[in-house]
């Protein structure tokens, strides 16, 4: 069964149509990569799925339940969806440990001991155990982004949304974040990721969706989409990427 099903999503910003009847289905344990030019609607789609943006049409189902229906409590929906942002968005006034335990303690009502034990376990697994008491501004970009992913994982989400998570990183720090995402895939985490890293999309994704003009123009397994794209717009986009030396 599909874990996430978006049907006919529409979103406008000040008269400009960003999502124009977009359909997307994500099965459990699947990793879906969204590629496309800036402004093609990748980030907007992720923000809509997490109910951070108001929809102008269409429906979103999570685990068969329509989360875009009126009367659904968005706070309850977001507890089941983790989200990681391009610029990390860690809370600068809280230590790494407090960043991670904030939602488990306040939203899921776990005890401090329980939440901290789980946070330390997750941090150890990604090699950041020594940074538990550090503040975000003392960490490198790659470390901050890995903490942000741990923070999202601490809620044990059903679905993880990753919005250009390596775009703000120095090239030598991209690898450590991508390794972590690969490990998550191995653990069976369902993920939707917007990315400019074509090599990574090809490597980690089960499905790649090419977005253009607010719709999924073409989707398929990476070999197919990168190897023999059928749509002219996809070919154009990939040609530009190859020209820029990004694939």
């Amino acid at each position: 069964m599909a874990l996430l099903r978006c049907r006919g999503l529409r979103k406008e910003f000040g008269g400009q149509v960003v999502l124009d009847g977009l359909d997307l289905t994500v099965a459990e344990h699947q990793v879906v990569a969204l590629i496309g030019a800036s402004g093609s609607g990748k980030s907007t789609l992720l923000r809509c799925v997490n109910l951070l943006e108001e929809l102008h049409d269409g429906t979103i189902e999570l685990d068969g339940e329509e989360i875009s229906a009126p009367g659904v409590d968005p706070d309850k929906v977001r507890r089941r969806i983790g989200m990681v942002f391009q610029s990390y968005n860690l809370f600068p006034h809280l230590s790494v440990l407090d960043n991670i335990t904030l939602a488990p303690r306040r939203v899921h009502r776990r005890s401090r001991t329980e939440a901290e034990a789980r946070a330390r376990e997750l941090l150890d697994r990604v090699g950041l155990g020594a940074k538990a008491n550090a503040y975000p501004d003392r960490l490198s970009g790659g470390q901050q982004q890995r903490v942000a992913i741990v923070r999202a994982l601490a809620n044990s989400p059903r679905l993880l949304l990753l919005d250009e998570v390596t775009s703000a990183l120095d090239p030598e720090l991209v690898g450590e974040v991508l390794t972590m995402i690969r490990d998550l895939k191995a653990d069976g985490m369902t993920m939707v990721l917007a990315t400019h890293e074509m090599g990574f999309a090809r490597d980690v994704a089960d499905q790649v969706c090419f977005l253009d003009g607010g719709r999924v123009v073409e989707h398929g397994p990476p070999e197919q989409l990168f190897g023999e794209p059928t749509q002219p717009r996809t070919r154009q986009f990939l040609a530009r990427i190859i020209e820029a030396g990004r694939l």
Binding site: D75, P92, H93
Partner: peptide, 28 residues
């Protein structure tokens, strides 16, 4: 606003976001 988005994405309510994320930073 990205701080609010991060807090809300974790499932915090508006009040919890104010209390634990916005006000501590604002007052400082």
């Amino acid at each position: 606003p990205s701080q609010l988005a991060a807090a809300r994405s974790l499932g915090l309510t508006y009040r919890q976001t104010m209390r634990h994320v916005v006000l501590p930073q604002a007052v400082r």
